[in-house]
């Protein structure tokens, strides 16, 4: 069963947005007017994010040290992912996006010469979509705990640890990600770019 959420509401990861912009809490000094301008741009960026997500649970049929077969004959080939999923009977696939407005507005701001907005929007989009992925993990954990199950602490995404970008196609097929307004290019890139897909194992608590 695939689940969708159209509006993920979460606590704004303000500290992380600042860190992404290079802020060093011990060294960086800002005047009130600088802080106000940056805070305003970040707040506008956050308002432009429309966090949506999809997830599904799939049984693992076959496990080896190099690959994992799950659901209806789908295979992820990655030794590192296989290691993460060792001992799990199922896995969760999920996808989150911050939508296209934030990406388009960041580009438009850069084109208009407003670098502060462009930077703030970009950082806000990246951190918000990351926080949304964490939200889904938290949500799933709450759902699973009644069955004495939990997600692996780590999640894994295509493009990392030897898991090729080609595997994005599996996410699009199984999670119907286009319903979130996300498209996959021929090179397996997701548009809008502030989109994350991930895999986590489902393990028993014992």
């Amino acid at each position: 069963m695939i689940n969708f959420i159209n509006n993920i509401v979460l606590s704004v990861p303000e500290r992380k947005i600042y860190s992404r912009l290079g802020h060093n809490r011990h060294l960086t000094e800002m005047s009130d007017s600088q802080r106000k301008k940056i805070d305003t741009a970040i707040a506008q960026g956050i308002a432009l994010c429309q966090l949506r997500g999809a997830w599904g649970r799939f049984e693992i049929n076959k496990w080896s040290e190099e690959s994992v077969e799950f659901g209806d004959g789908n295979v992820f080939e990655s030794a590192k992912l296989a290691k993460l999923l060792k001992g799990c009977k199922s896995l969760a696939l999920f996808a989150v996006t911050a939508g296209s407005d934030i990406v388009e507005e960041a580009s438009a701001s850069a084109a208009q010469g407003d670098g502060v907005k462009a930077l703030a929007y970009d950082a806000a989009g990246s951190e918000m979509v990351d926080a949304a992925a964490e939200w889904i993990q938290q949500y799933l954990n709450q759902q699973f705990k009644r069955n004495k199950e939990t997600l692996t602490k780590m999640r894994f995404s295509p493009g990392y640890g030897g898991l090729g970008l080609k595997s994005q196609a599996i996410f699009f097929k199984l999670l119907d990600i286009e319903k979130l307004g996300v498209k996959l290019t021929e090179d397996f890139l997701m548009i809008p770019e502030k989109t994350v897909t991930a895999i986590a194992g489902i393990q028993n608590i014992n």
């Binding site: 912009l21 290079g22 060294l27 960086t28 000094e29 600088q34 940056i38 741009a41 010469g113 670098g115």
Partner: peptide, 18 residues
């Protein structure tokens, strides 16, 4: 360079210059 400013402040200075 000495990290008293971070990227948005650098950009602000450059914007003012322009």
């Amino acid at each position: 360079d000495c990290k008293k400013y971070f990227l948005p402040q650098l950009i602000m200075g450059a914007d003012a210059m322009r």
